[in-house]
Amino acid sequence: MFDDLPDDVPRLETLRTWHAMWVTRIDAKLAQARQREAEQARAAAAREERRPDWLLDYGQNRAGTPTAVHVGDCRMAGGRAQGVSVEVARQALAGGVAACTLCRPDTELGMLDP
């Protein structure tokens, strides 16, 4: 079937050595890729565990008044958003802090006006 290989022992040994070297390199690269993927999966799981259920977004001034309430995984929450408890999120919404129009924390908390 594959009769294109040389017939003599020295050239066959050379080919075998060459291909064994490549298999070793491929195996090493494959192990690195698997390790990198496992580390990324562990890091993602750790980030998921640390994600709060509710966020208060402070806009440009973290020490100031919150500008919006978000569900914990909302993409619209800014870099200055802080994780808060459900009670603090409810108080902020009741106190007039805006609910994010994308994640709708007021709906999630059952606080919509009739």
Rank of each mutant, 00 (worst) to 15 (best):
T17C: 01
R90Q: 11
E13I: 06
T65G: 06
W18V: 00
M21I: 01
E13L: 15
A20N: 10
G96C: 04
G64K: 07
G96P: 01
W18G: 12
A98D: 12
T65M: 12
H19L: 07
T17E: 13
E108I: 02
R104L: 13
M111H: 08
Q32I: 01
C100Q: 07
T101V: 09
V86P: 05
D57F: 11
R25N: 14
A92V: 03
W54Y: 02
P52F: 00
L30Y: 07
A94T: 12
A33M: 10
G95F: 01
A38D: 14
A77Y: 04
W54F: 00
R34Y: 10
L112S: 13
T67P: 00
R75K: 13
A68W: 08
V71L: 10
D3K: 11
Q60P: 09
A77V: 01
A45F: 01
Q32P: 00
R62F: 06
A44S: 08
E108M: 11
D113V: 11
D27S: 14
E108C: 07
L93M: 10
V88A: 11
V84A: 00
G72P: 04
E108G: 12
A33I: 11
Y58E: 06
D73I: 08
D106A: 09
R25E: 15
G64L: 10
V69M: 03
R25C: 12
L109V: 06
T107I: 11
L5F: 14
T17V: 02
P10C: 13
P10N: 13
L55W: 02
M76V: 03
C74L: 06
L15Q: 09
F2Q: 12
R80E: 06
A41M: 05
D4Q: 14
R25P: 06
G110V: 03
D53F: 02
Q91T: 14
E37F: 07
G78K: 05
A68E: 05
T24G: 15
V97Y: 02
G79C: 01
P66F: 09
V86D: 06
V88M: 11
D7L: 14
P105R: 02
E49N: 03
E48C: 02
G79I: 01
E87Q: 12
A99D: 08
G72V: 03
R75P: 02
P66K: 02
I26D: 13
G95M: 02
S85L: 08
T24A: 15
R51T: 04
L112W: 07
V69L: 03
M76S: 07
R80W: 05
E48L: 10
G95C: 03
A45L: 07
L102Q: 08
